[in-house]
Structures are given as structure tokens and as C-alpha cells.
Amino acid sequence: MFGFLNKVGDYTRDAVGAAKYITQGLGVTFDHLRRRPVTVQYPYEKLIPSERYRGRIHYEFDKCIACEVCVRVCPINLPVVDWVMNKATKKKELRNYSIDFGVCIFCGNCVEYCPTNCLSMTEEYELAAYDRHSLNYDNVALGRLPTSVTSDPAVFALKELAYLPKGVMDPHGVSPTAPRAGRLPAQVIAAEASEPS
């Protein structure tokens, strides 16, 4: 008899608990209704990628020494370094260089290890194409500089979350000169240097 009553009691407690948690959840959802949308209207507004954004790779043909380090450090041996040995000068002659961005995972290893720093990562991320073969960039395509979001007159550039002042979530209407949350490494060093220790 009491076992049954206990069961009923447990049951009721479960039900009340469930109702309580659902109400709490509803409260959270309801609270979100009165927050402003954080939508970035993409083709018209774009976020400024952060400084260390790992986008499409930029390549400088003239600096490359065809050492193939980039190929060796790449997890998928992706860069294609097309060179011939010039018997007369006993030097490698670079003819072509290409990276297929349909395959690249943007890990940045090649950029990290290139001895002559001829590779670098840009902020370009709009790599959509109708044909995947057109993502195979040759040295000319790799040498193009990306258009910066901030210099494009057709685009309204918005700050990313990391660049916003402390406590601000919505990038719309934030003054371009407003300082970001936290300090830059240079500011930290400057503060350290001025500290009379």
C-alpha cells in the first residue's frame, strides 16, 4: 500500500520537476525573443576576418626556391611544384606552382615551414565555384591579392565578435574607432615596459 503511495509520490515529483524545467526553458526562449538579431546580411554586409584568419593561400613566384618543403609538410602533399633542373647552371628552374583549394584543409603547415616565406594566408574565404576544377589555383591565381572587406565600397564592413568592445554583441552601429575588448600584445608589452619594476 505504502509502496504504491511512494510510487505515486515519486511520479508526482517527476511531473512537477518536468513542468518546472520546461517552464525554465520557456523562460530562456522567451528571453531570447527580446534580444536583437545578430544577423549579418551577407552580400551587403561582411564581417572583417580576424588577423590570423586562415583563408586562401597567397604565393609569390619570385621568392620560391622550389625546395618542396611545402609538399613534404602538407598532410596531403598537396602543392604541386613543377620544376626542371637546368644542367648548365646546375639550378632548379621553377615552371609552375599550384594548390588545389578544393582539397586543401587550410592547416597552414606550408605557410609555417616555407624557408623563404613565399607563402602566406589571406583573409579570402569566398571560394565558391561552379566547377571544382576551377579551385585548382596556379601560380598566377595564387599571386592575386584578395580584396579587403574594408576597402570594398559595395560592402558594409562589420567588426567580428573579437574586435567588439567589451559586452557588445551586435556589430551594427559600433563606432569604427571603438577599442576592442582586452589588450593587443603590443599594448601589453608597452604596459610592461612602462611599469617601474
Partner: peptide, 8 residues
């Protein structure tokens, strides 16, 4: 739905 997810 959009408002609950902070979309437009």
C-alpha cells in the same frame, strides 16, 4: 522562430 534564435 527567427526571434527566438536571434535571426531576422
Amino acid at each position: 522562430s527567427a526571434a527566438a534564435q536571434q535571426r531576422i
